[in-house]
Simulated scan of single mutants.
Amino acid sequence: KSRTLCSIDASGKFNCGTADCGSGQVACNGAGAIPPASLVEFTIAPTGGVDYFDISLVDGFNLPVSVTPMGGTSECQAVVCAGNVNAICAPELAIRGQDGAVIACKSACMAFNQPEFCCSGDHNQPQACPPTDYSKMFKDQCPQAYSYAYDAQTSIFTCKAGANHQIPHAPVSS
Rank of each mutant, 00 (worst) to 15 (best):
Q77H: 04
I103Y: 01
F138S: 06
V172M: 14
Q114M: 13
Y146C: 06
D133N: 12
Q125H: 04
T43E: 04
S7V: 13
C89L: 11
E116R: 14
Y134P: 05
S11W: 11
M70G: 03
G60K: 00
G49V: 12
F53Y: 15
L63Y: 03
C129I: 00
H165E: 01
K136A: 13
G24I: 13
L93F: 03
C118E: 07
G30N: 06
I167V: 15
G83F: 06
G22W: 10
Q127P: 00
T158W: 03
V26Q: 14
I167M: 11
A170F: 01
A94V: 05
I167N: 05
K139S: 11
A78R: 09
G32H: 12
V40Y: 00
Q127H: 05
K13I: 15
Q153E: 08
T132Q: 08
C109Q: 07
S11V: 14
P46C: 08
I55F: 00
R3L: 12
D59S: 09
K1G: 07
E75L: 12
F42I: 10
P46E: 08
G121M: 11
V85N: 02
N113C: 05
F14S: 14
K106I: 04
P126R: 03
E92A: 12
F14D: 12
L57P: 01
S23D: 11
A149H: 07
T158K: 08
G32A: 15
V26G: 07
D59M: 03
E92M: 11
C21L: 12
G24E: 11
P115N: 04
F61P: 09
P130T: 06
L93Y: 03
L39S: 03
A87D: 14
G24Y: 10
P171Y: 00
A87H: 10
G121K: 10
C6S: 12
C142A: 04
S173L: 15
T68A: 09
N29Q: 11
S120G: 11
F157V: 08
I34F: 06
Q141V: 07
G83L: 09
S74C: 01
Q153K: 10
F14L: 12
Q25A: 14
D20S: 10
I167R: 07
P35C: 09
P35H: 00
A149L: 11
G48S: 09
F112T: 09
F42G: 06
G49M: 13
T68V: 13
C142G: 07
S174H: 07
A108L: 13
M110H: 04
F42D: 05
D122F: 07
V65W: 00
Q144R: 06
F14M: 14
C21V: 13
V40T: 08
P126Q: 02
G22K: 08
I167S: 01
H165I: 04
L39G: 00
C6G: 12
N86Y: 06
V58I: 14
G32Y: 12
Q114W: 04
S107T: 05
A101L: 14
K160A: 12
A108Y: 02
C118H: 04
C129T: 01
A45H: 02
A108I: 13
G83D: 02
V102A: 10
C81V: 08
V102M: 10
K136Y: 09
C118F: 02
S135M: 10
D151W: 01
D59V: 03
F53W: 02
V85H: 05
D54L: 03
D9I: 15
G100Y: 02
K139P: 00
S38P: 01
D54G: 02
I103H: 01
P168G: 06
Y146G: 05
